[in-house]
Design a binder for these strands. Structure first.
Lengths: 156, 156
DNA sequence: CCAGGTCATTGGGAGCCCCAACGATAGCGA
DNA sequence: TCGCTATCGTTGGGGCTCCCAATGACCTGG
């Protein structure tokens, strides 16, 4: 078979298709890396978000990361069972849960951030640092199309 | 509302995350567009690939598009039921099915290609044509990392 | 003929995404 | 105070993509 099982140019020329393929590879690499510590991409994302946003409700967490509330429950159950986050009722608003990072969570986050970086380095191995920056810029502009603003005041 | 439901910078800085978000938006846009003719992204991809590769086996199709054989069966069942492709046993190799485009499929493909283009234009609306080209180039290089060769000999 | 590989098909399952509903709570106006 | 509306966490169902395994039919090489 000199046959090119090669790829249809018409499909390949669609950004949506390439994005899907590239995202699939990125997900695979990150998932493999995080599996070393028994975590998934979403686990790491939530852990990282909690670290940055401080004690935060599940709803805010979900909006920040575009995670479905249903999935958020499962993720936080996992993280809580592993002692990586605390889930306490918010005194000011008893509907909310205040999600915060535990000491274990801090330590785990250091690991997962390192693993995530490695995986992303491999993902973008074919790119120069400048190209990687360029890629991020382009992707941000694509993604931001669907979250027009939610402008956050600068002085918190 | 000084909504700081804003996004964790640490996660946002990961190419894998941005790729995932961008791909999700791309998939959503394309899926919405193709739903107008009762098709999904994979349907269009297969249809387009069949048009380019001519009569082709399901296995080759799957390898070209990174589609699981299991999913390929379902997709081709749909396309065949809609009369868009023909699925005939290959005379040379009776294991294979020769998938080919029907006249209806040709017409449908024209529609779906148009719809796909529109959706991708919306997806990349924030980008200049040059930036879009740049994005494609970067994505191609990321994706090609995992399909090293399949060398189609030039001098065949 | 036999062994090993490929092909289409079937099955199970994981992970991410979307929609809908529920009880509990908060905020507001009457 | 009583409703009304909205949000929060939770549960349920379902769709789409991707991965792994197995089967019977078929091709190739020995």
């Amino acid at each position: 078979m000199s046959e090119t099982t090669r790829a249809p140019a018409r499909i390949r020329s669609l950004p949506s298709w390439l994005l899907g393929r590239a995202a699939a590879r990125g997900h695979r690499l990150v998932a493999e890396a995080l599996a070393q510590v028994g975590m998934r991409m979403m686990h790491h994302a939530v852990l990282s978000a909690v670290a940055e946003l401080g004690p935060v409700s599940q709803a805010d967490l979900g909006r920040s990361l575009s995670i479905d509330p249903k999935d958020m429950v499962a993720i936080l159950n996992d993280l809580q069972n592993d002692g990586l986050v605390t889930r306490a009722p918010d005194a000011k608003d008893r509907r909310k849960n205040a999600i915060a990072l535990s000491p274990s969570g801090k330590r785990r986050l250091i690991q997962t951030e390192s693993l995530g970086r490695e995986a992303n380095d491999e993902l973008t191995a074919a790119l120069t640092p400048a190209e990687r920056t360029q890629l991020m810029d382009l992707l941000v502009r694509i993604v931001q199309q669907e979250e027009p603003c939610t402008e956050t005041g600068p002085g918190g």
